[in-house]
Amino acid sequence: MEQDGINLWRQIGETLAEEIGTGTFAPGDRLPPSTDLATRFGVNQHTVLRAISHLQNEGMVRIERGRGTYVADVIPYRLGRRTRFEENLKELNHAPQRTLIAVTDIPSTPAIATHLELAPNELVTQVTVLAIADDIPISINSNFFPRSQLPGIGDAFRVEAARPKPNLATQSVLAALGIADFERRKIRIRGRESTQDEARLLRMPPQENVFEVEVLNVDAEGRPIVFGQSIFCLSRVEFVWDFALGDLS
């Protein structure tokens, strides 16, 4: 009996995978509800959910909490010295958007102080933003700015967020404060389990993993200007390395 159950969910998974592969369900399409699929295949809902879970593990679908199951549409995110989130998405015909979550001044942790070349516990402004592509949450970005160097950065983000059509790109906000150019100096990427808050904000299953990306940006004189920690939903993005960037460190 158990073997029959395994065969059933595998057969359902193979059928759905074939339909995804042939374009019956295109990238970004929402699959029918599990109740409808259970009726279609003549099985119980649990069997369908096992098939969908398998497809998720294979990277073919993504599950958004409270919204449904969608065919995976992985965004290739280019990593270069100056490649920005908005530029990358527009090149791929995706609509970028950012939502401000929080702005707060906090004492720098030892790691942040080291990256930004600050004294221990020196104040930094933490700006946390949710990055979205085509209404799908892609990443949670926490950027840390040296308050002594950029005392007005927090207010600049608050003012921009209050506009009818805000542009919360770090590049744009810094440009308004007189910093016309900056580039990535260091990038560190690692995988880990998501926290409950991360899974909630990214509308992803609690058991799905995330990429944690740390980036140090410097201004035209090579001074650290912002240290960022971004959490990406693993099934929604892949990183494409731009060799012009140089060596990882």
Rank of each mutant, 00 (worst) to 15 (best):
Gln229Cys: 03
Val74His: 09
Gln229Ile: 11
Asn88His: 05
Ala133Gly: 10
His94Phe: 14
Asn93Lys: 13
Met60Pro: 03
Gln56Ala: 08
Val218Ile: 15
Pro27Val: 07
Arg163Ser: 03
Ile225Ala: 02
Ser230Trp: 01
Ala72Ser: 15
Val215Met: 13
His54Lys: 14
Val237Trp: 08
Glu198Ala: 04
Val159Asn: 14
Trp241Thr: 05
Glu183Ala: 09
Glu58Asn: 08
Phe25Met: 10
Ile132Asp: 06
Val240Ser: 06
Arg40Gln: 13
Leu150Val: 09
Phe243Val: 12
Glu221Gly: 04
Thr24Pro: 00
Arg98Leu: 01
Pro120Cys: 07
Glu214Gly: 02
Trp9Gly: 00
Ile189Asp: 04
Glu122Gln: 15
Ala220Gln: 15
Thr128Met: 03
Ala180Cys: 05
Gln149Pro: 00
Arg158Asn: 11
Ala169His: 01
Gly154Pro: 03
Ile106Met: 12
Arg82Tyr: 10
Pro151Gly: 07
Leu16Thr: 05
Arg223Tyr: 07
Ser194Arg: 02
Arg185Gln: 12
Gln97Asn: 14
Asp105Ala: 11
Ile179Asn: 00
Gly154Asn: 11
Ala175Arg: 15
Asn93Ser: 10
Ala38Asn: 12
Asn88Gln: 04
Asp155Leu: 09
Thr22Pro: 03
Leu49Met: 13
Arg82Ser: 07
Gln149Gly: 01
Ser249Ile: 13
Ile20His: 00
Tyr77Leu: 09
Ala102Phe: 07
Gly191Asn: 11
Val218Trp: 01
Gly154Lys: 04
Glu86Met: 05
Gly152Ala: 11
Ile189Tyr: 01
Ala102Ser: 15
Ile75His: 02
Ala17Asn: 14
Trp241Leu: 06
Thr109His: 02
Ile153Pro: 01
Leu55Trp: 11
Val71Gly: 05
Asp36Cys: 00
Glu183Ile: 04
Ile132Ser: 07
Leu130Met: 13
Asp242Lys: 08
Arg30Thr: 06
Asn57Ala: 11
Gln149Ala: 05
Gln149Arg: 15
Glu122His: 05
Val159Phe: 07
Asp4Phe: 06
Ala162Lys: 09
Asp134Ser: 06
Glu212Phe: 07
Ile75Cys: 03
Thr170Asn: 03
Gln56Ile: 02
Leu55Ile: 01
Val226Pro: 00
Gly28Thr: 07
Gly13Met: 12
Ile75Gln: 09
Gln126Ala: 14
Glu18Gln: 12
Ile153Trp: 01
Glu221Trp: 05
Val71Ile: 11
Phe232Arg: 02
Ala113Met: 04
Ala199Gly: 05
Ile231Gln: 00
